[in-house]
Amino acid sequence: MLKDITLGQYFPGDTVVHRLDPRTKIVLVLVYIVAMFIAESFASYALMLVVLALAISLSRIRLATVLKGVKPLIFVIAITAFLNIFYTSGRVLVEFWIFKITEEGIFNAIFMSLRIIMLIMGTFMLTYTTSPIMLTVGIEQLLGPLKVIKVPVHELAMMMSMALRLIPTLIEETDKIMSAQKARGADFDTGNLIQKAKALLPILVPLFISAFRRADELAVAMESRCYHGGEGRTRLNVLTMSGRDYISFASAAAVLAGVITLAHFGL
């Protein structure tokens, strides 16, 4: 059951979006987020919607899959919409008891919900189309200049990729420990919240012990394979920017400029 968790939610593929340099994709997503916050009119939202639709269709990831990412946050979106409807002052449309619904409130609610939904969908496109390893490599290279001010960029990236590497192993281990405890009569499914939490303790203790032991052994194995930090390290797969990356940058700049212009004219 735990094995069903797909981490990083990466969907392998061989589309233009998949083949983009991870650095490009990270930058594009950042630009997209900025643009989403600048956009505040029908025209700019329409433009951003076109961008999002284009990215999704190019990546050949099913719309239903992308929308699934929004599902866990539906509650947050609902609350945002609710607050916007009732707490925006403006031309009153309906009034009852202490509540007032204004025209501006309705517009705000729609825009805010749409903004959150589109932000989630857009950022999910990054993890859907980029393998965790490539994402780590991309982040490491993008943050590279920060090494000058002594930010341990390589170490952070190594920690991230180690965590990604160990997650499936630890999930498997948890499964095993749970089975072992169940075989000895442990009950994880009944009782109230506190009882359930208490039942988890016999899983967490051995899991932690084994995680530490694994980490120790892994460190020894890494050392015996000549690991000595990021200094002088080379890469099997070197990231290279190609034509499609530059085209994406140009398009992103154009969209951002478009959104800013639209906002400037109050459209």
Partner: peptide, 22 residues
Amino acid sequence: DNQIVSNVVEEDVAFAPENLGV
């Protein structure tokens, strides 16, 4: 399980030569 460092087989094999700056 405790000596494999990467999520992809070939990247794991590349780990040592990467460390050596090949």
